[in-house]
Every structure is written in structure tokens, then in C-alpha cells.
Amino acid sequence: MTQHSGLSEQGAEALYAAPRIAHRQRPWLLLMTAIVLAFELSMLWLARDPQVDDHYRRYFIDHATTCYRPIGEVPVIEMGNTYAVRKGEVLGNCGVLWAGFYSPKEDQAVSARLAEVTLRLKVAPGLHQPVVVGMDLSRYPDNAEPLPVQVVVNGTLLTHWPVGGSKERFEVDIPERLIASDGSISMTLKGPPPIAPRDVGLNANKFPIGLRLDVIALHSSPRTTTQKAGE
């Protein structure tokens, strides 16, 4: 028994036997420990700064998007229809949502994990008319004050939406010239920086959440309707 055997039920030597390390072995063992430890620390140092491209960083490290790269067709959105944006739904694939949106589960809203996110939408090719895109948007957390979100379509700033915590419908009129000949529309939303639930004391989730997108709906522009009525 060692002098401290009274502190435990069975003392160190009784449990683990007396050290069998010879005095001259000791420095070598310590040296080996130091060398292995130095290697491990250097690997940890390298791990801090991965040498990877932006796609990799966004998907694997920042968890800023559900998709590593755009995969899946961008479906044609029918006028007058309303589409839930969820994983597993028509507009929930990596063709539509890959740049900055995160859609974790089929029963959860799609949310942006970056301040700037892009949606790829598509209307019927050869539509030749302006369209109105409506979105049910809110900002995290539920009690967030409304702050302006820029709506940019194909590089042109169209409007600002004051998006707050409560789910609200916002609409933007997209002129015909900003719709590509194949009907595709690239729509970027630039909002305030996302917030991590951990930072507002809600839970331990460290990944930031920005805009939440529930629904997308398309309809004809009133101008077009009026114009057609006039004709």
C-alpha cells in the first residue's frame, strides 16, 4: 500500500501494481510523450485553418447550406399556385435552395444561415410578362424587430422588405426584362446578419439563423392584368 491508500478503497499499488519503470527509462518515456504530444498539437493547429474551397466551407464547416452543390431540377412555378418551401417538397431541393439556405427536416421551415442568400426560381419559358413573387418570410427570433431586407433580382435592386419576427407575406414585382428567356429568375435576399440561438440564450445551437422562408407564391402583375383588361 502507498502512503495515500486510505484515500481510496484500494490503493494505487494494490490496484495497478508498483511502477515497473526503471529510472533510466523515465527520461525516454517522457521524451516520447513530448514528441507525440507535439505532433498531436501541431495537427490540432492545422485543423484550425482548413485549406478548402468556399463550397466546402459553407456546406461542411459553416453548415450554411443544405446542399454541397446545386443538384436537382429547378421546377417551373405555376401562376396562382402557392408552394410550401420544405425539404422533400417541390421547392425544397438543392437546385432551388443551394446558396445559403438550410432546410434541416421535412417538418421544419427553411432558414437562411447567411446574411445573403439566393433562390433559383423558374416560370414557364416564353411567358413574356412581369410577375409578382410573394414570400412568407420572418426573421429569427420570433420577437425580432423588422429590419430592411434588400431584394435583388439578376443583380438589380428592386425593393426593401421590412422583415420582422412574425411570419408575413411580402411581394415584389419582377419586370419582364429581368426574367431569362428560359424563365429562370435568380433572386437574392440581403438581410441583417443571422443570429445563433446560443447568442440569444434560447438553446445551445451555435449555427446562426437569419430569414425563415415558409411559402412562395406567384401571380400575374396587376399592371399586366390592367393592361390586358384595357386591351
Binding site: L29, T33, A47, P50, Q51
Partner: peptide, 29 residues
């Protein structure tokens, strides 16, 4: 017992060696 200390650093060494391979292959340890 420096042999216990050595176990302490040798135990996770396999993982760190794998990390070195991954860093070489992908840039991300």
C-alpha cells in the same frame, strides 16, 4: 508512471494520424 502518460498521448494518436492523412487529401484535418 510516465508509461501512463505515454498511454494518454498514444491512445488518440491513431486519430491524429488519420487527421494528417485527411489534411493531405482534402485540406481539412
Amino acid at each position: 508512471r510516465p508509461d501512463w502518460l505515454l498511454i494518454g498521448v498514444m491512445g488518440p494518436l491513431g486519430l491524429f494520424l488519420f487527421m494528417a492523412v485527411l489534411y493531405y487529401q482534402t485540406g481539412d484535418a
